[in-house]
Structures are given as C-alpha cells and as structure tokens.
Design a binder for these strands. Structure first.
Length: 201
DNA sequence: CGCCGGATTTAA
DNA sequence: TAAATCCGGCGA
C-alpha cells in the first residue's frame, strides 16, 4: 500500500525559502555516511535571475522541473558537483542548494573522500565539499531522495535558531535577486561560511 | 561552432 | 589573490 507522505515530503512542496529552512537539520544518508544539513540556499523558478531555471528548461536543469524530493546535480567551475533538492509543485522549477553540513556518522569515509586527515568545522562547509563528502556525481542527477536506496533525505533535529542572509556567488543576478535573503544556516553549527553576512532570522 | 563564465575550492 | 578545469548556454 502507498506510504503516507512524510513530514519532510510535505515541507518540500512549499515555496523554496520555506522548504530551505525545513531542510536545516535534516540528514543526507548514503551507505554508512550521514550528513546533517547546516546551510542551504533557496532558488526560485524562471523568474529568479539567480536560478539555473532563468533560461527555461534545458537538458541540464531538467530535474528542477520534476517532482519535489528529487536531486538536481550540476557540475560547476570544471571541478565541483553541487547538490540541490527539488522543491515545490512539479513544473515550478524551484530547488534548494545544499551549501553545508556536519558529519553525523561515517567520518572515516568522509575523511577519505575529502582527502582530509582529521575532522574540522570546515570539512563539509561549502556545496562542493558536501557533494564530495557523499561521493556524488552525475549518476545521482534526478535521484529520488525520498525513496530507500542510494542517497536518502531523512528527518533530523531542526536547529534552535536560524540565520539568514543573501545568497553567495550570484553576482550575475539582478540587484533585487542578489539582495533576497534566501541563504539560511543553522545557528548552532560551526560549519557555516561567512557567518558575519548572516543575521538572526 | 567557438566563446564566456560560472550557485567553488585550495594553496600561496 | 589566482589557478585549476570543463561544460552549458548563447550568439554567430
């Protein structure tokens, strides 16, 4: 029989900024590795000049137009994979970029993938680092994060406080979209980039 | 078909 | 502060 929609699945149907905040504290699980999400950014559909959806549907961003709960992975700067969680109703092309995380379990595997000797606060602080820590690549593009197997999104403890501020690395967007405070971070985490650019939500 | 530049990371 | 590194999207 059909499983009841999980709380997290319901949250992902909401507008991207709300879905983004709901993802803080949630877990990304792959095999023995679990990462607690500590930093995210919301991206709107075609109307958001910072979004990959701004040029409409293309082969690369196709997963963004699909149902919520899927992964959208893209390759950036010739070397990094970025993990997004598709949100909103199907066809809206909204998504949340996972920008930072803490290792909840599987530290040894993460250290190997990140080529790090020991755990530091910055180990998974940054979108490229998150994908690398989970060993993600093109093969995970379009993956259903709400289904068992492979890479899964699971409920976690939400942060006590949430920080908010402008999104990073979107200098190409309109001033209005650059100013939109759609970056969110867990107030209780050290794995957050540029904390001073954030304020209490 | 060629060019431009990017939702970045790292080391110097 | 800059190099690494490559592919998508756009204009010609």
């Amino acid at each position: 029989m059909e499983a009841m929609p999980t709380a997290i699945a319901l949250e992902l149907q909401r507008p991207p900024d709300l879905a983004a905040r709901a993802l803080l504290g949630a877990l990304l699980v792959r095999k023995g590795v679990a990462l607690r999400i500590t930093e995210v950014e919301a991206y709107g559909g075609p109307a958001d000049s910072a979004s990959h959806a701004r040029h409409g549907r293309t082969p690369r961003n196709a997963p963004m137009w699909g149902p919520p709960g899927r992964a959208y992975l893209y390759f950036c700067y010739g070397m990094h994979w970025m993990l997004n969680v598709v949100t909103g109703p199907e066809g809206e092309a909204t998504a949340v970029l996972i920008r930072g995380a803490e290792v909840a379990s599987g530290l040894d595997d993460v250290l190997l993938r990140r080529k790090a000797a020991r755990a530091t606060p910055g180990l998974c602080a940054g979108p490229g680092k998150v994908a690398q820590a989970l060993g993600l690549d093109r093969s995970f593009d379009g993956h259903d994060l709400l289904a068992p197997g492979g890479l899964e999104l699971r409920p976690g403890a939400p942060p006590e406080t949430i920080l908010a501020g402008p999104r990073l690395g979107i200098g190409f967007a309109t001033p209005e979209d650059q100013a939109r405070p759609w970056r969110f971070a867990a107030g209780d985490s050290r794995a957050v980039l540029q904390r001073k650019a954030l304020h209490l939500f």
